[in-house]
Amino acid sequence: MKSRYQIVIFDLDGTLCESGDGILNSVKYALEKMGCPVPPPEVLRKFIGPPMGQSCQKYCGMTPEQAAEMVAFYRERYHAIGWLENRLYPGIAELLKDLKAGGAKLATASSKPKAALVRIMEHFGIIEDFDALAAAGPDGFHSSKPEMIEQAIAGCGGADQRDVVMIGDTHFDVEGALVAGVDFIAASYGYGTKEELRRAGANCFADTVEALRVLLLPS
């Protein structure tokens, strides 16, 4: 089967990996270390995806200095155990292999710091499938999804925007794809809600990895 797109760009958390337990357990740990209340589940869930420092300020009302301290506590637990509270979505490993066989180049555009991204992808044995890895900086604050998408395209050798697709599960992914001028498929099996994704501009949804396969590798 031939890939519909020349370049396929993936978010990590909620798209390739079901990583919520490790992230949220580490957020709770960091909040407790800070002496801060843990937000309700519907707010806590929003920590999955965006840069952690930004989420600390947005959802917990922290100053930049407090957010930096919380990010350090978060990483304390996440790097020890949280990154292992994680698994690939069933069918992802096979999909990546089939996309490569179908002629696609693969890349990431993830708000996770690159060192953590590489560690997780090596752990799951999928890093060799990727041609480019675009990720956030090491500070947990600065991450421009449109810039990462552009870096991913360049890392794959370039392509017409019509031949590129971004796949992700949050409004940050949708908005990044719109700014970058590439197609977007919402991984609605992930952590973002369909309402959030639609509001951001998504109009193509994959409720399962198998549905994503059909969109990327039409028979």
Results as ranks from 00 to 15, higher is better:
E210K: 10
E85Q: 15
G190T: 13
A152W: 06
L106F: 05
A93E: 15
F124W: 14
S111Y: 04
M121E: 00
E94Q: 08
T208E: 05
L99A: 03
E85L: 13
A107E: 05
A80N: 12
W83V: 15
R162I: 12
F130Q: 06
L117S: 15
G137Y: 09
E195D: 11
D163T: 00
V165A: 01
M148N: 13
G158P: 12
L197W: 08
S188Y: 04
A104Y: 07
G140N: 09
E150Y: 02
A101M: 06
E210G: 05
Q151M: 14
G168S: 06
Y78H: 04
D160V: 07
G137C: 09
R75Q: 06
E94S: 04
V164C: 06
M148Y: 09
D160K: 02
L197R: 02
Y78T: 01
G125M: 10
E122G: 08
G125Y: 04
S110I: 04
R75S: 03
G158K: 03
A80F: 11
N86S: 14
K194G: 12
K100R: 15
G192T: 03
A211E: 12
C204M: 10
A134K: 10
P138C: 09
E85G: 13
A206F: 04
Y78P: 00
V209G: 08
L88T: 15
H123A: 11
D98F: 00
R119S: 15
G168K: 03
M166T: 01
F172D: 02
A180R: 11
D131K: 03
A104R: 01
H123P: 03
P146E: 07
L84W: 12
Q151S: 14
C156K: 04
V164E: 01
G102F: 08
H123T: 05
S111C: 11
I149F: 00
R75F: 00
A202W: 03
E94G: 06
D139S: 14
R77T: 04
P113G: 09
F205R: 03
G192K: 02
E195W: 08
G158R: 05
R198G: 14
W83G: 12
G91Y: 13
A180D: 07
G102C: 06
V179F: 02
A136E: 02
E147M: 09
S110F: 00
D207L: 06
G190C: 08
Y191N: 03
S144A: 13
L106N: 09
F73C: 11
E196M: 05
I126D: 00
A80M: 08
L96H: 12
D169M: 00
